[in-house]
């Protein structure tokens, strides 16, 4: 029993220490004067591998989720004779919730795990140490461009997800099930507000982007530099980031729409 309590205490202390390490890592990576000439190409390279390479999974998932929303929404709404509201229903679900949340979950699985594994491997093969010995700060060189790439690309991916999803809803609702084309778009336009819906979705997405990328980088940078350590860190990134996204989503939704 005492062992269990001691174990619990250690787990709590470890996670506090971990959070502290993560905080210090991020601060050191982000403060300091930016060197545009050097960091711009690095950022572009990371935007490509973090953002562009995640496009396919985002577009395909967005399309399917939009189609499912169209189908489910139609079967529910048609019972009330309200199938004209299919447009706003699809659009609002995507912009407020599914776009930011599902994108963040997919991003954690696709890009987050890759970031953790890449940085963990750089640590295990002494590439980070060798940067340090060359007087190049790995936090500025490796962590910082990856952080900004994740932070900028996730909201864009979420918007793409929502746009493709709305198109999927349109395909199913209008093209297949025969909801009126004009009504679908005009009721949607009348009911979706820029500030309340689109902007809040983007804010959510920025928060998720910050958290997921940060967790992925921290888990990689502070992993145990062995193959077991890296595989644990990668799993932990996906689990921790997903839970953080879902938990934060509730908090943010309560603040924004509650």
């Amino acid at each position: 029993m005492l062992d269990r309590i001691a174990g619990l205490g250690k787990a709590v202390l470890d996670s506090i220490a971990g959070a502290g390490q993560a905080m210090v890592m991020l601060l050191r990576a982000l403060i300091g004067k930016p060197q545009l000439r050097k960091s711009w190409p690095l950022l572009m390279q990371q935007m490509y591998s973090v953002g562009v390479l995640s496009l396919i999974i985002i577009v395909v998932s967005g399309l399917f989720i939009g189609m499912v929303l169209g189908l489910q929404g139609y079967t529910i709404l048609v019972d009330f004779g309200a199938e004209q509201s299919l447009g706003p229903m699809v659009a609002l679900s995507l912009l407020r919730e599914l776009g930011p949340v599902v994108t963040a979950l997919l991003f954690a699985g696709r890009a987050g795990s890759a970031l953790t594994a890449e940085i963990g491997l750089m640590k295990a093969t002494e590439q980070l140490s060798s940067l340090e010995m060359m007087a190049v700060d790995p936090l500025r060189r490796v962590i910082s461009p990856r952080f900004w790439a994740g932070f900028y690309s996730m909201p864009l991916l979420a918007l793409i997800f929502s746009a493709v999803g709305i198109y999927g809803g349109y395909l199913v609702g209008v093209r297949w099930l025969g909801v009126d084309d004009g009504a679908f778009w005009s009721v949607m336009q009348a009911n979706v507000e820029w500030g309340q819906d689109i902007l809040n979705g983007i804010i959510k997405s920025l928060v998720f982007a910050f958290v997921v990328t940060w967790i992925a980088l921290h888990k990689g940078y502070h992993c145990v530099p062995t193959s077991v350590g890296i595989s644990r860190a990668t799993t932990s990134t996906v689990v921790t980031a997903s839970l953080a996204v879902l938990g934060l989503d509730f908090v943010l939704t309560a603040l924004m729409f509650g």
Binding site: L121, M122, T125, E126, Q127, S129, S130, E132, M133, M134, A135, D137
Partner: peptide, 23 residues
């Protein structure tokens, strides 16, 4: 301090046991 250490490190160099080339 970190910045002074980096200044000094520019004067030294290390061949790591594993090579540690950037992959």
């Amino acid at each position: 301090s970190r910045s002074h250490l980096y200044e000094q490190r520019k004067r030294m160099s290390m061949l790591f046991q594993s090579g540690a080339l950037f992959t």
